[in-house]
Design a protein around this nucleic acid. Structure first.
Lengths: 167, 167
DNA sequence: CGGGAGTATATAACTCATTATATACTTTCC
DNA sequence: GGAAAGTATATAATGAGTTATATACTCCCG
């Protein structure tokens, strides 16, 4: 149940609308969370009804009226409680990796192709990753670099054992 | 919708029961997927009803009768189709990271504590990680090592700037 | 022989996430 | 003035994942 807390966190700097929050979440993957508007709007409404955020509707110069939320003192308390929780390892789910793990049963050529595709994804993500101005961003870059190095190394091993695998 | 495919993949080597599959999924995080029994049993039943797997009930020497599944030719075709799909980057969600990203607003001491906790989690996971006998396992180890190094480096930076932050 | 631990399957209730769809306001361009 | 694109909020339907609960078979220990 992280979304409401992440929203509180983003709101704690300055007030924002659901639309704004969505922009920030999807533009900075280093934030470690993302959600669709269909999740965000109800979540904001629950924060409001729970007394963790307040709302003000304001006319927008370029669209329908915006509902701008800000954190209440109760919201700030709740946020700090959440921030202080000890971390626990999540279940790591990754469809790409799941495929790779099973791919050992398929021909070398297909494994190499998948590794290249994974490498390219990591490389694209790295190119568009904001520079390392925060711990979270530096972590993301380091992990992406590791992933690229790993994919290259694995592909090289396969190719050295199956010289024709890239055809 | 990866679970059914992952199950087909695990089943493609040898027949197995839902219980067996759960053991394998939770014992090897490098598989990139996990699920609870409450997901696995209905999923296996759907695979069976879709003609992708067959079942045989067998008496067990240490419990109630086991329902052992195996992949059918149609299941194998479906599995191969899935394996050949191009990978796409998932939405990366990580409550621990999300907290860290927001923590920049809190005192240095709390940040260091969270970084230490994250480092310990990675370190524990690494200790209990099976050795790198597959590409997927090597990837997991590399990522965990990167995460440890990152957490150490970040903590060191904070401590050098706030000498009293560890109190 | 009764209870606990481990094995094994199953379903219900619930929460969380995704996809689809609807509405509406503003600016820009034709 | 009408269509398109971007901004903005909202809900319904569906799917995926978690938690809780129930049942049942075997072995072992006291």
């Amino acid at each position: 149940m992280s979304l409401p807390h992440v929203l509180l966190g983003l709101l704690s700097g300055a007030s924002a609308s659901g639309w704004d929050l969505k922009q920030r979440l999807s533009r900075d993957p280093a934030l470690g969370w993302d959600a669709t508007l269909a999740q965000i709007y109800p979540a904001l409404d629950r924060l409001f009804r729970g007394g963790f955020a307040s709302v003000r509707t304001r006319r927008s110069s370029k669209g329908p009226p915006r509902r701008e939320y800000r954190v209440t003192p109760a919201g700030l308390r709740e946020l700090k409680t959440w921030l202080a929780e000890p971390p626990s390892r999540r279940r790591e789910r990754d469809p790409g990796l799941a495929r790779l793990a099973l791919l050992e049963m398929l021909p070398a050529g297909e494994r190499v192709a998948l590794l290249h595709a994974m490498r390219d994804l990591a490389s694209d993500a790295l190119r568009s990753a904001p520079p390392g101005t925060s711990a979270a961003r530096r972590r993301r870059r380091a992990l992406l670099e590791t992933e690229m190095a790993w994919a290259d190394a694995e592909a090289a091993v396969i190719l050295s054992r199956h010289p024709r695998a890239s055809e």
